[in-house]
């Protein structure tokens, strides 16, 4: 696995090459309204703690501390419940993702992390509650519209189109977000970040190695940085050295202004990266707060750590 990998430059986007952000313009409105927080923001996570019925550890809650964070978070989940068919996976999940932050979404297996990611990107519609992107309510919007609003989701597991070639995988994404004119440049950027993909451009994506498939799914997202990137178990099945590189990459794109929601099994890695942590258990938020205030709660909240 590690053998075919290029050295670190292969993984790390070179910052000078990063494009001028096309999504920057929609961002500024957010700091412009620091005085009056909009209505949707009112039912914020404060209420989550008292409503917590099962006597979990009551978390220090996000909105209590004013801090340097912008007043309006980029993404707000407000009492979101969701499920699959008759099975209910999330119960009144509320948390906020501040602008420019990296939020780690942690929890044991089956806690609902992936469902939270799917709800945020519109793949799963919440049965109850609301989701806001900045001021805009995005509850119930389909995934492709959310992608156009700047929410990108790199799903768990193999997340490339196995029957298409590498280049077709990339073009599919770029043509829809950048148009036919912007696509070749984005393709070039993706290839310069991940030279390995250029070598394999005409290979069927299903025959790539696991690491290469991850590169591909990351390259699809990174060539045109979204406002919010949700990565679900990006390091799954990767060699440790490559995991490090993946996290460096995530750190880099955060420094470019991209807000991150990271779901990870490598808890320590995630905590190094993240500014804030949200811990889920059995479909409920049991902790939501800054990483430094977590302390050794993490051991209690995530069994087996």
């Amino acid at each position: 696995m590690s053998q075919p990998m290029p050295p670190a430059p292969g993984w790390q986007p070179q910052i000078p090459m990063a494009p001028p952000e096309p999504q920057i313009p929609p961002a500024p409105p957010v700091p412009q309204v620091p005085i009056a927080p909009p209505a949707p923001q009112v039912p914020m996570p404060q209420q989550a703690a008292p409503a917590d019925p099962a006597g979990y550890v009551t978390a220090p809650v996000a909105a209590v501390q004013p801090g340097p964070e912008p007043a309006v978070p980029l993404l707000t989940l407000d009492y979101v419940s969701a499920g699959y068919g008759q099975f209910r996976a999330l119960f009144d999940v509320s948390f906020a993702v501040p602008m420019g932050c990296a939020v780690a979404l942690l929890g044991p297996n089956g806690a609902g992390k992936t469902t939270v990611a799917r709800v945020c990107s519109g793949l799963v519609q919440p049965t109850n509650g609301a989701i806001y992107l900045g001021h805009q309510e995005i509850t119930g919007m389909p995934a492709h519209e959310l992608r156009r609003l700047g929410i990108a989701h790199a799903p768990e597991g193999r997340s490339v189109f196995a029957s298409l070639t590498v280049e077709e995988n990339l073009l599919l994404e770029f043509r829809s977000s950048l148009g036919k004119t912007g696509a070749p440049a984005a393709l070039e950027r993706a290839y310069s970040w991940f030279p390995r993909l250029r070598e394999r451009r005409n290979q069927i994506a299903g025959t790539l190695s696991g690491g290469e498939q991850r590169m591909l799914s990351l390259a699809r997202v990174l060539a045109d940085l979204p406002r919010l990137l949700i990565v679900d178990e990006l390091s799954l099945g990767l060699a440790p050295i490559i995991v490090d590189e993946v996290f460096e990459t995530l750190d880099t794109i955060r420094s470019q202004g991209c807000t991150l929601v990271v779901i990870e099994q490598h808890v320590n890695k995630a905590l190094e990266l993240a500014d804030r942590v949200v811990i889920l258990q059995k479909g409920r938020v049991v902790y939501d707060g800054p990483t430094d205030e977590l302390g050794d709660l993490v051991g209690q909240l995530i069994p087996g750590l």
């Binding site: 156009r148 990108a152 298409l164 994404e173």
Partner: peptide
């Protein structure tokens, strides 16, 4: 061709 494989992932690509 992409929709055959996974309409959901096509949506994630903004289509």
């Amino acid at each position: 061709r992409a929709v055959v494989e996974s309409p959901r992932m096509v949506q994630l690509a903004g289509i």
